[in-house]
Computed example of a mutant assay.
Amino acid sequence: MEAKRPKRMTKQRKIILEELRKLTSHPTADELYEIVRARLPRVSLGTVYRNLEVLSEQGDILKLESAGSQKRFDGNPEPHYHIRCVQCGRVGDVEHDGEVVLPSMEHFHCEGFTIHSQSLEFYGLCADCQEKLEAREAVGL
């Protein structure tokens, strides 16, 4: 099987990557599209989607997928943990003291599957959703 060659870094792809790497919010493609339009007013949403897929396939960014949620993108492709708010879907990085250690895939087996990748995600409430919950509880709702 022939290895895929990296795709050329087009001007649009470069700007999308630059804008994503400025963020820590792990935006959806739609959110990033709105940001990129400030620099590329004529860019289409489809172009942003396609380039995010290419950048993800090449390992330049991370694509964060969770069942029932929109894909989000992370400009930091290094292994690290994420936390997702169970209320609003916001995603953030988990601070970790020391080296990030993911379990070795060679120790896991699943009948009928070949494991290609892994991720570890934490779930909780973001500060905004926690504040709203506490406000509702304070008024007895």
Rank of each mutant, 00 (worst) to 15 (best):
Y81T: 05
N51E: 14
H82E: 00
M9N: 12
P79R: 02
V100Y: 04
L40I: 12
E18N: 07
N51K: 03
M9A: 12
G68A: 04
R13S: 07
G89M: 06
I61G: 04
H82A: 01
T28R: 05
L23K: 02
Q58W: 11
E34T: 10
T24I: 00
A38H: 12
S25M: 03
L23F: 04
T47D: 05
S66E: 14
I16K: 05
D74A: 01
D93I: 08
I35Q: 03
L62G: 03
V36C: 03
N76P: 01
L62R: 15
R84G: 08
V94G: 00
R90K: 10
H107T: 11
T24D: 10
H26D: 02
I15W: 06
I61F: 02
K22D: 06
P27V: 04
L17Y: 02
K7D: 10
V86R: 13
N76L: 04
T24N: 11
S104N: 13
T47V: 06
K11N: 15
H26P: 03
V48M: 09
G89N: 11
H107N: 12
E34N: 13
D30H: 13
R13A: 09
H80P: 01
G46W: 02
A29S: 15
K14C: 09
G68P: 08
Y49D: 10
P6N: 09
E99F: 02
L23Y: 00
R84C: 06
I15H: 01
E19D: 05
L23I: 07
R13H: 00
I15Q: 03
P103G: 06
C88R: 08
Q12F: 09
G46E: 03
D60F: 12
I35R: 08
L102M: 13
Q12N: 13
T10D: 07
Q70H: 14
M9E: 14
R42V: 11
K7C: 13
Y49V: 10
H96F: 11
M105A: 14
H80C: 00
S25P: 01
R13M: 08
D97P: 03
L32I: 02
L23Q: 05
T28S: 11
G75W: 01
C88H: 06
